[in-house]
Design a binder for these strands. Structure first.
Lengths: 125, 125
DNA sequence: ACATCTGTTATAGTTATAGTATAACAGATG
DNA sequence: CATCTGTTATACTATAACTATAACAGATGT
């Protein structure tokens, strides 16, 4: 966590949890710290953590049983649908436009993606 | 231009100009509207346009000859270097983590990228 | 010379977002 | 019944985005 970053803390938190799920360090059913304990752990306010959890819940990454706490979605994360695909393409567009301008070829770009993918698919970590 | 978007106007402007260069609708040496005329065209303040131009200049997309106005870099956009590659990977990471969680495979992801690339490489548009 | 265009800078104000600080509520647990 | 949970409400500060004017300095055209 970088509290000095331009990236909002609650966004960094979301990314970190999503990465944890992608890397299978967080498995379906695993429980996450309460908003209060996590907030105190990383030294931020309760609401900042709550904001991250709220969004993750909305996106189907986690479930929240009032008193039992926060749990990684036991059903797994909702599969990619059309609206996801559209949003992804919209988000990637500016990066690819910049790559084209800088002479960063399709092959190089794909190689970069593959390398990142491999970070998440390493088994037995 | 979507003045209602959560995406800041000056960012949208940057993206649009970068896309123009990527699609070769804007060629090296082409001149762009003055900050004032562009601002009045899209109905925003002079400073909003200036902020976008400033960043584009910093990134080497455009040159600014005090009185001659704004011009697409005649030398072309600076080629991808290591710091660019690092930043790109850092930026792509969250999108790929999400894709992994949603069962969006590497092949599908790459297919998405290729399709976007093809939008920029279409000749004779 | 002079008006006019250019990018640039400065100042000030508004609005929205991010984050903090408390407090309280409601359901579940021990 | 105290304590933990997520949730909600309110209020405050700091910062970013945007707007509104105004002015400056260099170049151009008449």
């Amino acid at each position: 966590m970088d509290l000095e970053s331009a990236e909002p803390i609650y966004i960094q938190l979301q990314h970190q949890i999503i990465e944890g799920i992608a890397k299978k360090k967080l498995l379906p059913g695993d429980s996450l710290p309460s908003v209060r304990s996590l907030a105190s752990d990383i030294g931020v306010n309760l609401h900042t953590v709550n904001k991250a959890y709220k969004q993750l819940k909305q996106d189907g990454y986690i479930l929240i049983h009032r008193q039992k706490g926060v749990v990684v979605n036991p059903e797994g994360v909702p599969k990619a649908d059309n609206s996801y695909r559209e949003l992804l393409a919209k988000n990637l567009r500016p990066y690819i436009a910049e790559a084209v301008c800088r002479g960063f070829t399709e092959e190089e770009f794909i190689q970069t993606c593959k390398q990142i993918y491999s970070n998440f698919n390493e088994r037995g970590e």
